[in-house]
Design a protein around this nucleic acid. Sequence first.
DNA 1: ATGGCGGCTCGCAGCCGA
Length: 254
Amino acid sequence: MKIATWNVNSLSVRLPQVLDWLRAVQPDVLALQETKLVDDKFPLAEIEAAGYHAVFAGQKTYNGVAILSRKIGMDVVKDLPGLDDPQRRILAAAYDSVRILNIYIPNGEATGSDKYQYKLGWLEKLTLFITEELKRYSKLVVLGDFNIAPEERDVHDPVAWEGKVLFSAPERQAFQRLLQIGLCDTFRLFDQAEKQFSWWDYRMNAFRRNMGLRIDHILASKTLCDKCTACVIDKMPRKNERPSDHAPVVAEFS
DNA sequence: ATGGCGGCTCGCAGCCGA
């Protein structure tokens, strides 16, 4: 089973690239973030024509998440329990015994800002929700745009980023808590080349200079980590004309 | 120190992202 995540930064702009990528990579599940589309405008016909089902939770201009899948999703959840939040940042669905939890964690703007507090609160509620989901599903995948670089090796310039949003201690601790409650970072189950990132700023030729961060992740429960055979970042779509600033991440399970 | 790019909108300037 091939499971992927991609922050597309507008699905209406990136739809042709997503369809090309589905054809080339043939994932069983693709979790999308930042669709930036209300549900009425979700391109369901094009996605079904490509051989995929879809569940989606959209809003205007910002955020928006979707899961494309070969099978039909069941037990769909679109809200983070305990948080009254109009922002569409979470989408869970079950595919047979495999639970997929697609998340777009808030950016946080800057440490100390209101948005940073919102991010930390969101992470607390997320941790509680995952704890409950693990009780219901032994095969759980939590994937998406985490907006957290977990370790120094996930940052092109850790000295410059020290204490900054996306790499601050409270955010990294929240990420570690997700590992403590029973998830593994599938990317780190395998030997990886150095300086592997999933996001590069559009500015300053950051992609060409590989000035990036690894902030898009695929975490899995113990049962699935034992079955994980690969996890890679696919940089090819970042080389497209009009690319998303994020690259897809792909994990495979036997 | 700033803004740099790209996508969005009750749009043509200002916001947000990371």
